[in-house]
C-alpha cells in the first residue's frame, strides 16, 4: 500500500523554484534511497515533507496514508508518523535528553488521542531502546545533543526513531560527519527498525551508506526532479560513473 505519494511537486524558496515537478511513491515496508549531487533538491524534499517553514509549495500534492500532508501542521505530521532524522541535529542546552524524549513522545500520543505514558513505563522503554543502540544512560541526562560527538548525535536520532515508532523515516545525510564505526552502529540501529509496516527514505550523496542500509529502490535526483529510478545496483553504477551523466537528463 502506498504510504507516501508525492505528485508533481513544485517548491519555491524566496522566488526561486527548487523542485520542478517531483513525483515519488513509497510503499509500506520499502527502503528508498535518494541520491544526487549538491543542490539537486534532496534536502528540500525532506524539509517540505516534514513541514519546515520557509518553503512555498506552488503546485502538486503530497499524500501520506491517503491524507493531504500539506494541510497538516508539522507537529501533526510528526504525530501521524512522519519522522525526519536531521543532518545536523540541534543542541538544546538545559533540556535533558530524557525530558525532551518524554515531552515529545507524550505530545505525539496526546495528539493521537492516546494516554500519556507513565514515568516507569517510559523509563523502561527508553532503557531497552538505548541499550540496543549502545547509548549510555548518562548521555540521556545531558542536555539534548549538548557536547555530543557526531556519532552520538546520530544515535540520538535513531533512538528517537525507535521510541516514537514512526511509519515513515526520512534520513537526511545520515552519514555526514561519521566515521566508519559510528556509521555502522547508526545503520545497524536503523536496520533493526525496519519492518513490513515502516518505510525508510535514505538521502545521501554517497553509495557508502547503502552498503549498510540496503535499499529496495534507488532514485537519482538532479535539478529538482527524479531523473532515474532503479534497483540497488543503480547506486553502484553512480559510484562508478558519477552524477554528470544525469545533468543533461534534467
Amino acid at each position: 500500500m502506498a504510504l507516501l505519494e508525492v505528485k508533481d511537486l513544485k517548491v519555491r524558496v524566496e522566488e526561486r523554484e527548487i523542485l520542478h515537478g517531483l513525483t515519488l511513491t513509497v510503499n509500506e515496508g520499502e527502503i528508498h534511497a535518494i541520491m544526487g549531487p549538491n543542490g539537486s533538491g534532496k534536502s528540500t524534499l525532506s524539509h517540505v515533507i516534514a513541514g519546515k517553514p520557509g518553503y512555498e509549495v506552488t503546485d502538486g500534492q503530497i499524500l501520506f496514508k491517503g491524507e493531504d500532508l500539506l494541510e497538516m501542521a508539522p507537529e501533526e505530521r510528526a504525530a501521524k508518523g512522519v519522522f525526519l532524522a536531521f543532518q545536523y541535529p540541534v543542541e538544546i542546552p538545559g533540556v535533558t535528553t530524557m525530558n525532551f524524549l518524554r515531552t515529545a513522545l507524550n505530545a505525539q500520543r496526546k495528539a493521537r488521542g492516546e494516554t500519556e505514558l507513565m514515568v516507569p513505563d517510559f523509563l523502561k522503554k527508553v532503557r531497552e531502546v538505548s541499550k540496543s543502540l549502545n547509548i549510555p544512560q548518562d548521555m540521556l541526562k545531558r542536555g539534548v545533543n549538548v557536547g555530543f560527538s557526531g556519532g552520538e548525535k546520530k544515535r540520538n536520532e535513531v533512538l528517537q526513531m525507535a521510541l516514537f515508532e514512526p511509519s515513515l523515516c526520512i534520513l537526511d545525510e545520515m552519514d555526514s560527519g561519521l566515521d566508519i564505526d559510528a556509521l555502522r552502529i547508526a545503520a545497524d540501529g536503523v536496520n533493526a527498525l525496519h519492518s513490513p509496516k515502516r518505510a525508510m527514505v535514505v538521502i545521501t550523496h554517497y553509495q557508502r551508506l547503502l552498503n549498510y542500509i540496503v535499499p529496495d529502490i534507488v532514485h537519482v535526483m538532479s535539478k529538482g526532479r527524479v531523473v532515474k529510478s532503479g534497483g540497488k545496483e543503480l547506486a553502484l553504477e553512480l559510484e562508478a560513473s558519477g552524477y554528470a551523466q544525469f545533468e543533461d537528463a534534467a
Binding site: A78, F86, I92, P93, G94, T103
Partner: peptide
C-alpha cells in the same frame, strides 16, 4: 532550527518555545 527540531518531534509551537526557554 531549534524550534523546528522540537516541532518535528511533535511539540506545538508554544510547547517548543516553553521547552527551550525553560532550558535556558
Amino acid at each position: 532550527d531549534v524550534l523546528f527540531y522540537c516541532i518535528q518531534r511533535g511539540l506545538s509551537q508554544e510547547e517548543a518555545v516553553g521547552l527551550v526557554v525553560n532550558g535556558f
